[in-house]
Design a binder for these strands. Structure first.
Length: 268
DNA sequence: AGTACGTCCTGATCGC
DNA sequence: TGCGATCAGGACGTAC
């Protein structure tokens, strides 16, 4: 499940693979429902002949800035992954979309579960939902997080998952952040103390930067394989497994229908 | 406005 | 060992 670290590493992978500078020579959209806008014909025509100038990330969205001013937006959903490969190389069986490049390579969009999404727009603001501060940026502070949680009585984990509060947060890093900060996922957000908000802010930054760094160090030699399947969790995602801090049994529950794991001793 | 839940999807995993 | 049942969850629409 690509969350911020995986999406950011995908961005770095695309840059390393030389997608910026390449020009689209066509596109094969194999799962039309993934294309949100525009209609298929305009999507293909709009990409044709356009060169990728830059690749940005906003939350979990990848934005390929094209010459001429348009932006190709990709969201990896839960099982999405991207690869830039020679057309002659056999494609992964779960490739749903193929973007042909003018250098004989292809940008291949893998997406087993078909939850990924694509847009081609003049202004990303027209289609992107409101996104909160990026937790890796300077604007993500105890003050801004506290303000975002003010008056909210939903479980803190549910709010961490809202992209309008923490852009790029996902289920696994939410559990990780709450474990690192010793806060139980079910706690009403507004009841967190100032000190807890501060610890949570640090934990979110720490969980995400650790994941990014772990990938870059341990998998660097594997580039250009896609950055997926990172496993840098402190907390086991298995009920009854031993807590790495106290040795007690990890509890499993569901919050907003999302699998949630925490240590009942370490997280209060 | 805030909160909760169903829906979309299918590969991977579980359990008998 | 095999196979059907269940699980996984990001974002959105709907409902209360």
């Amino acid at each position: 499940m690509p969350e911020l670290p995986e999406v950011e590493n995908t961005r770095r992978y695309l840059i390393k693979a030389g997608l910026p500078g390449s020009t689209f020579a066509g596109a094969d959209v194999g799962w039309p429902k993934a294309l949100k806008t525009p209609a298929l014909e305009d999507f293909v025509l709009g990409l044709l002949g356009r060169r990728v100038e830059r690749i940005d990330r906003q939350g979990k969205y990848l934005l390929a800035r094209l010459d001429g001013g348009a932006t190709l937006i990709l969201h990896l959903g839960m099982t999405g992954g991207l690869r830039v490969q020679p057309a002659s190389q056999p494609a992964h069986p779960l490739v749903r979309h193929t973007f042909f490049l003018n250098d004989g390579r292809e940008l291949r969009f893998i997406d087993g579960r078909k939850f990924a999404k694509m847009w081609l727009v003049d202004d990303p603001k027209d289609v992107l939902p409101p996104l909160g501060n990026d937790p890796l940026g300077d604007d993500f502070t105890p003050a801004t997080l506290s303000a975002a949680l003010k008056g909210r009585n939903a479980p803190v984990k549910a709010l961490l998952l809202e992209q309008s509060i923490v852009a790029g947060m996902g289920n696994l890093y939410a559990d990780e952040s709450l474990f690192l900060s010793g806060i139980r996922p079910s706690r009403p957000a507004a009841k967190l103390s100032k000190r807890e908000i501060s610890k949570l802010t640090d934990a979110v930054k720490s969980a995400l930067t650790t994941a990014l760094a772990a990938y870059n160090i341990s998998r660097e030699e594997q580039w250009p394989d896609p950055p997926m399947g990172m496993q840098t969790w402190s907390i086991p995602r298995k009920e009854g497994a031993p807590c790495p801090r106290c040795g007690g049994a990890i509890s499993g529950t569901r919050i907003r229908a999302r699998g949630t794991f925490f240590c009942p001793k370490c997280q209060r």
